[in-house]
């Protein structure tokens, strides 16, 4: 009985973490689907979003939830700027070099955050919350809001991808880039939208992560591996798979703490990813998008 409750408690944490990872993994997956490279600075877009949200709050004194739209806007702008200034120049000639370029870009972004905000640890205003006691489980109010926010963001993305011209064009480009070009879909515009959405979702993950714990310049980098794991487990290039991947990785990371030292959560994500790569190189879900 005791372990069952513990398991359920950890599952709640896992779902919360999973919803955060999902938002990051969707972006990684979309960028991979359209630009065909693993974006190593994606974790740092989380960081940018979280800190932009923080900056907005401290400038305006707005209620804490305004960090979400503010962070999303900030990270979307950063993502587009980075793509236009750097990735765009490189992808024309040597796509594979984008891997190392984005790795370096991640370090740059992290350092800029550190120059602006310093190496200190911040947290969003709101203080410590008293958890709700439901049956034997304790539920932190913020966790409910985090999950809700993630669900809303994913739902909005779904509507965008299935109901709008640009959203469909994004799916089309991810399906078949060559055909998209001969069809007359404006590739550069779709790529820009991809960065806006990928950056905004990453920022969503960053702000929610910041609400769950605290803000440090390394917060995004240390989340990058689980995000990649989620994207790969879900089938990289398939945003909808990222939801399943995110949940699986989030749950596995939290539940693993029953058995092993919590410092190895990250390694758990890595091991699952490697196992999936060996057994199912294309992810656990069949079908695209």
């Amino acid at each position: 009985m005791y372990t069952l409750i513990e398991l359920m408690q950890l599952s709640i944490y896992g779902i919360v973490l999973g919803s955060i990872l999902t938002l990051g993994a969707i972006g990684v997956s979309m960028i991979f689907g359209i630009l065909r490279f693993a974006h190593f600075a994606h974790g740092d877009l989380l960081t940018v979003g979280a800190y932009c949200g923080l900056g907005f709050l401290s400038l305006t004194g707005a209620p804490v939830w305004f960090a979400l739209p503010a962070g999303m806007a900030g990270a979307a702008v950063v993502a587009v700027l980075v793509d236009q200034a750097v990735y765009r120049q490189i992808r024309r000639t040597q796509p594979v070099i984008l891997l190392i370029s984005s790795f370096g870009m991640g370090l740059i972004i992290r350092s800029v955050v550190q120059v602006i905000w310093g190496p200190d640890v911040y947290s969003y205003p709101g203080g410590i919350q008293r958890p709700w006691q439901i049956w034997e489980l304790s539920i932190i109010p913020n966790h409910v809001w985090i999950l809700l926010a993630a669900v809303v963001l994913v739902a909005l993305l779904h509507l965008f991808l299935t109901r709008t011209r640009l959203g469909k064009a994004m799916r089309a480009m991810s399906d078949n880039m060559d055909l998209a070009l001969v069809t007359g879909i404006p590739a550069e515009r779709v790529i820009m939208i991809t960065w806006i959405i990928g950056g905004a979702l990453a920022a969503g993950a960053g702000v929610l992560l910041g609400m769950d714990s605290r803000l440090t310049p390394m917060m995004g980098w240390s989340t990058l591996l689980p995000i990649f794991a989620a994207a790969i487990v879900g089938g990289i290039g398939r945003p909808y798979g990222a939801i399943a991947g995110g949940m699986l990785i989030g749950l596995a990371m939290e539940i693993s703490t029953l058995f092993i030292d919590p410092s190895y959560k990250l390694a758990v994500a890595f091991v699952i990813m490697v196992a999936v790569l060996i057994v199912r190189p294309h992810g656990i879900l069949k079908g695209a998008w």
């Binding site: 011209r165 799916r171 089309a172 998209a180 079908g287």
Partner: peptide, 19 residues
Amino acid sequence: HNVFPSLTVQENLEMGGYA
């Protein structure tokens, strides 16, 4: 490879009219 496989028939046609 002359269709967008994960798009529906109608979405394929809509993409055709994108330009």
